[in-house]
Design a binder for these strands. Structure first.
Lengths: 341, 341
DNA sequence: CTGAAAGCGCTTACAG
DNA sequence: CTGAAAGCGCTTACAG
């Protein structure tokens, strides 16, 4: 039988209340007594039953998700996943709150994080903006003993406990590998469609993409980056222009959002003349484009996995438990038309 | 506050014991009484606290994993993951037992499954062999109320509750897509290295592979399948022979185990003359081969995910709870040298 | 500084 | 067929 607090109390010759004080590091125990109890705990190999403790405490984990009120498919999907987790949460003694902030708005994000401090939850997950003010706000939260997980977009050099998202440099490298190998012509010309170079994920994807192209596919020429600010209409115009101007443009890496526009521009070109295209995030439109051959591969991060992972990590941190690194690693899905879920 | 059994008892005007009887569908309650209680449950929107119930019952979930005592890297890794789960299990009120059976030995597997019935666990996970005897043994388990999950290899048309493994047809299709696109010469000749056509996974991978090649890359010729029985030495000999004989062999899909042998044979060929190679399962040797360019892509199933998923599903079934399909879908990882974990 | 008692939400003999 | 009481492993006022 697994040892319980009763066994500890009996062996140490103290009451349950004292055992509990030692177990939870509460003050008001003479050090002689404390040592007796600690000895008993060690000799028994006691490990506490968290479920029973939570039941007795009436504990509810409170987590807050700070999400951008963004209108692209991926962020909408992310929000849905958090809402789905909210539905399930009451069963697991959790309460999840969502705070929406304008996208790409660092001051708004900082304000939201500071407001969280007034009724502090056990943990906070945020889609970070890589900016000093945000870094400071995160540090304040962690100093207050709140677990912090960045979601989708990380915060470099910050105090956050964990990042639930993909390795964007590796994603860019992977895209370059695929574009390079899919290109039949060795003297290809490749264009990059990005959201904004102000965003860390996009910079990292570009960095990985460029480094593999130059290392492994030096014969491929790279055109100037097109920044469409994750906007479909802007992406459409930019891509259409590039396709007209650069005769011989035979590869495109779309590393941000706005793929609906990209796809519209591509469909104006005869199928056999279309470039090799790698895009990010599996959505309704990229799925369709994969199936009809407009897009060749989609790199994807699974929003559901990211949200569930963030919650598991926040809970583990709140309980002072270790996280299973292998389980929480968010993978870069590579989808071709043949392995769509 | 969430309603509890006390609230139900009060509103229905009965004792806790009666509430419990109704809640757990136990006999010995007059139907008038039962209805009163059910009405109270519904009106309160009661949902039971599983943790509290398990505490009161002193419940421990018992799961049995039946694994092949196979010596290939993947199966060894799978065993390790189950052992890791055993370590964690006591904390979560679970007990996991492992039974090893000789690989590819259907009668031994059947015997093991029948032996399980003597001290029936709550659930069984098995690496299935697609065979009528196994199907019958699985059916017997499910009829005894035991949850059954197939792991890595499924059992067609059987009573198993869930399959924790990849879609092998999609894996084969994906391999074909990559080989086809990576091949620079349109008139390629492609070889397939398999373990055994007796194994369902291998048959399915081949099926997917062939169908995409013929659909999308009709100019590619396919050589007769080489069966190496998942043995490295046999694989080495077969591949070496094929490379010598078929001048112009420029693609290989290795859909089974024994990749160490494949890699040895490939390394005898000058790098620039090597074929495009797609293999399965990320192991020490395939990882090295990816990095040095001997292998171009590895399709992988994450044994850790499969084991954790199997356990979650067994637990959900034991509790009569639904499983989150999106969470339990086992994905086909595609690894290139640039997105290795 | 320490302990006896009650309670978290549920289940289980046992008695009637 | 029904209920009062004790208990699962832990925590929390409260009293001393």
């Amino acid at each position: 039988m697994k040892p319980t607090v009763h066994d500890i109390a009996r062996i140490a010759g103290v009451s349950l209340a004292t055992v509990d004080r030692v177990l939870n590091g509460r003050p008001g125990v003479r050090s002689v007594t404390r040592e007796k109890v600690e000895k008993a705990i060690a000799s028994l190999g006691y490990v506490r039953d968290l479920a029973a403790a939570n039941l007795a405490k009436g504990r509810t984990y409170r987590f807050t998700f700070v999400l951008p009120s963004n209108d692209n498919s991926f962020m909408i999907g992310l929000g849905r996943e958090v809402e789905a987790a909210m539905q399930r949460s009451s069963v697991e003694r959790m309460r999840i709150d969502i705070i929406r902030v304008p996208a790409f708005d660092a001051p708004a994000l900082v304000a939201a994080l500071e407001a969280v401090g007034s009724a502090p939850p056990d943990g906070v997950a945020l889609v970070a903006i890589d900016e000093p003010g945000v870094r400071a706000a995160v540090e304040k939260l962690t100093e207050a003993g709140i677990a912090v997980v960045t979601l989708v977009s990380d915060l470099s050099g910050s105090a956050r406990h964990h990042y639930a998202g993909i390795d964007n440099i590796a994603a860019g490298r992977t895209a370059a590998n695929l574009v390079g190998r899919f290109l039949s012509k060795v003297d290809g010309r490749v264009g990059v469609l990005a959201g904004s170079m102000m965003v860390r994920d996009h910079r990292e994807r570009l960095e990985g993409f460029l480094s593999v192209l130059s290392e492994d596919f030096p014969q491929v020429a790279i055109l100037p980056v097109m920044e469409a600010r994750d906007d479909a209409a802007a992406a459409e115009a930019l891509v259409r222009g590039a396709l007209r101007r650069h005769v011989g443009l035979n590869g495109i890496y779309s590393l941000g959002a706005g793929n609906r526009g990209l796809i519209r521009a591509l469909r104006e070109v005869a199928p056999e003349k279309r470039p090799v295209v790698i895009a990010h995030e599996l959505t309704h439109s990229t799925r369709e484009a994969l199936l009809d051959g407009t897009i060749d591969a989609v790199l994807n991060q699974d929003a559901g996995h990211e949200v569930r992972s963030a919650i598991r990590v926040l809970k583990a941190k709140a309980d002072g438990l270790p996280v299973l690194a292998a389980q929480e690693r968010i993978r870069i899905d590579i989808f071709l038309k043949d392995n769509l879920p």
